[in-house]
Amino acid sequence: MFESIDQVIDQLREQQYICDRRLATVIFLALKMQKPVLIEGPAGVGKTELAKVVALALNRQMIRLQCYEGLDEARALYEWEYSKQLLYTQILREKIGRTLEHVTDLREAVAQIRHHEDAFFSEHFIVRRPILQALLAPEPVVLLIDEIDRAEEQFEAFLLEVLSDFQVSIPELGTIKATAPPAVVITSNNTRELSDALKRRCLHLTIGYPGEARELEIVRLKVPEISETLAQQVVEVIRRVRALDLRKAPSISETLDWARALILLNAESLTPELVEETLQLILKYDRDVQKVTRELPKLLGGSGADSQHHHDHDHHHHHDAGMQAALERQREHTADYFSSYRGNTRS
């Protein structure tokens, strides 16, 4: 268990996850208050990763439930193992006969059988799906409910009981309560609005794209073999690409992929040709690639040669820093909100 917010930051850093205070505060509170965390943000900013590293840092098992369209309680909570039940009835036929050997009338037989009824509706015959697994684990675990916005609204309703009381009601068995309440992390890519009831039960956290310094730190940590100049150039170009009006802006995961690819290509610094050749790595849509290619000279201006770099530095100073930051935040905020654009792709 984390004892303080600083400890959260430190321990996550040990697991190679850089987080700011805001994020650490929410994680700390969630664990202390035993409440689920709902993380929203664009794809690839480390939402899922966060659950993984929390599990690692706490030395807990992580149980993951990937949501998809059509996910139902039989896949998420539990399912009766009917074939096993049937098999057991067959095998035990003789045994049942013997139990009823001395019984004279039907009424008595029914009474006899009733005694043994619960043998067939016991936990023994239940297939434990991720949520039940998490509840029944002897040690507390981290339960990751990934991309909940992919599942239907009805699915959220199944989750409510689990999230508020860490229990599941199975009609035949009664209520199963968690032996050790799991830490629950729910992620959403914000493709649709989640219900208020779900939101109310969770602590809410929005992760956006990281600031320049933090992104640089992440690149250095995750791709340790990268040279300082290249890291800086990569982060700078990525930030400028994000500022463009794109269908899918590159996230941290794309930054890291790109950095790793550049290392494989033995690049020491970015050149326009190199960027153009590797653009496919950070952009997922053809239209975006075309747009960025057009803007390429502007994007690379100031990050190519050292002399230019100097110029860029000055450029930044001219701006009012506070204003710049505010505008940037505003832009990121709106860009983050509806993260994935699905209009044309899924009609």
Partner: peptide
Amino acid sequence: DALRGLTLTALAERELVREILACTLIKDAR
């Protein structure tokens, strides 16, 4: 939740209070 959250930490920092209030009270990024 917000009040519980506030009792769990030392209230020395303003930023911290803001984060605690934000994550417990505000559930819609808008």
